[in-house]
Simulated assay, not measured.
Amino acid sequence: MDFNLPESALAVQEGVRAIAGKYDQAYWDRCDTEKRWPEEVWQELVEGGWHSLAIPEEYGGAGQGLLELSVALESLAAGGAGGAASFMYLLTPAFGGLTIMRHGTEEQKREFLPKIVSGEIETCFAITEPDAGSNAINITTQARRDGDHFLVGGQKIWISGVERADFLVLVARTIPAAEAKPRTAGFTVFLVDIKDAIAQGTLSYQPIPKLGTNTVASSMVFLDDVRVPAERVLGHVDQGFAVMWDILNPERILAAASGVGFGELVLQVACDYARDRAPFGKPIGANQAVAFPLAKIKAQVELARLMTYKAAWLWDRGRPCGSEANIAKLTAADAAWQAADRAFQTHGGMAYSLEYPVARMFRDARIAKNIPVAEELVLAHIAQHELGLPKSY
């Protein structure tokens, strides 16, 4: 058993940290206030190949794995990006790159992967629906065959990054839920050309006003008989449930990596303030009431890091990792939230001032307890599959 990161991951850690170090908290505050994508950082990641680490070398990538991708995301978050880092590694590197790499045909890989590597193509993911929420089995977006195409109709909600993406990795039903036997049958995953569908008037979207994570928009997406060529199916028709889960597990692992890095960053901000603030003649960090909660959160972050690396290691080896991915996401999200909450308390009244980044961090950290899966559903999964308790939903 070796707990040292491989040389490849250490190089990633160093390279991404160097990029993150060029951008201070004022930069991330501006991106959040202006509700704009951190384009400068994204371009540096693309130019250095830090976004395409897990894409095989034959398509222009680095030929590494989800572990290195997780370390990159963690490093970007810890280096200053915080919650804004998450979608920079989920939208295109994971939803597009990993999914096409694992489930695309050879033709799809040669068409899309080199363009993802070069930055020509960006992607996003659409599964959640207004009336289904976390219950993906109940999605109603339908795709029906029409010759060499499928016609896709329905609504998706909380689709992040659609405003800048070229392709939408979309989950739809090709067999209605009432007719599917078993219930997990009849799902199909499509690559939808967003700009073409908008030009045809069959796809539109409406951004949703949000509390935080404003460096990327999240939208309601409307699909009105969007025409998708049959060769744009990822995996097999009616057999997309396995593809869907192979998207969701890496999503949770990367979300966990984001939580670990975010927690580390927020702890640094809180500790810097606790060392400098001395209203009674000595730093407030000398008081155990301030120091001990921060120390406890440090322990939580380190434990979450271990489980995140384990889950990524398992995924890279093709081994089952559902429970590990869920546990990593659960613990990392809670560690990031506890860190943000404690940083807020450590700053006292100054936490309310927008001159400090803690208000933004507080807003951004909270959502991780709800997405990409609510912690209650994670706990239900652990109770059933790890403890053998009766199914609760």
Rank of each mutant, 00 (worst) to 15 (best):
Y59M: 12
V216Y: 11
Q268N: 13
A274M: 07
Q200T: 01
D224Q: 14
G186M: 05
S118W: 09
E7S: 14
A368F: 15
A84K: 03
N214Y: 00
A278T: 04
R342M: 14
F280Q: 14
A328T: 06
K181I: 09
D2W: 09
R30P: 00
K210R: 15
H103K: 15
E179T: 09
I121Q: 06
N135I: 03
L379D: 05
T346P: 10
E106S: 13
A368V: 03
G259Y: 06
D131V: 02
A299P: 00
G104R: 07
M307H: 08
L354Y: 09
K35D: 00
P114N: 11
K310C: 05
P93K: 09
A336V: 04
G388K: 03
H103R: 14
Q64W: 15
P38F: 06
A180M: 05
T202D: 08
A172K: 01
A199C: 01
A81V: 08
A335Y: 04
L234W: 05
L379E: 12
E44G: 03
M307F: 01
R277M: 12
V237I: 15
D341A: 13
S353M: 09
K210N: 11
A343I: 09
I137A: 08
A199Q: 13
G96Y: 01
L170P: 02
P207H: 02
M361Q: 13
V358M: 09
G119D: 06
Q13Y: 14
K296W: 04
Q13I: 07
K109V: 07
G349W: 07
E386M: 12
L66M: 15
A11D: 13
W337Q: 05
A365V: 08
L265S: 03
N326M: 11
Y356P: 05
W42Q: 09
A336N: 02
L389M: 15
Q268R: 15
E40I: 02
A178R: 07
S258L: 05
R232P: 00
P93Q: 11
A165M: 08
G60K: 09
G201T: 10
L90P: 09
V269I: 15
V46M: 08
A374I: 14
A85V: 00
E14F: 03
P229R: 14
A333P: 09
D225W: 00
A72G: 06
W28P: 04
V260H: 02
G15D: 14
F3I: 12
A165I: 05
A77Y: 02
V228L: 10
Q108H: 10
A199R: 12
E39Q: 12
L223A: 03
L113T: 04
D224E: 15
G235Y: 07
N135A: 10
N138H: 04
R17K: 06
E74A: 11
C31N: 10
E107R: 15
N4I: 10
T99H: 04
H236A: 14
R232G: 00
E122G: 00
H236C: 06
L203P: 02
L387C: 13
A291Y: 10
I198W: 00
A304P: 06
M350F: 12
Y352T: 13
A312S: 11
E57R: 15
D272K: 12
Y273F: 15
E57M: 10
I137T: 01
H347S: 00
K181N: 08
E264Y: 03
G263Y: 10
Q268I: 01
A78W: 07
A311N: 10
E264C: 01
R30V: 04
A380W: 00
R317I: 13
L168M: 14
L151M: 11
E14T: 14
A180V: 06
C31E: 03
V269N: 01
A351Q: 11
W313A: 08
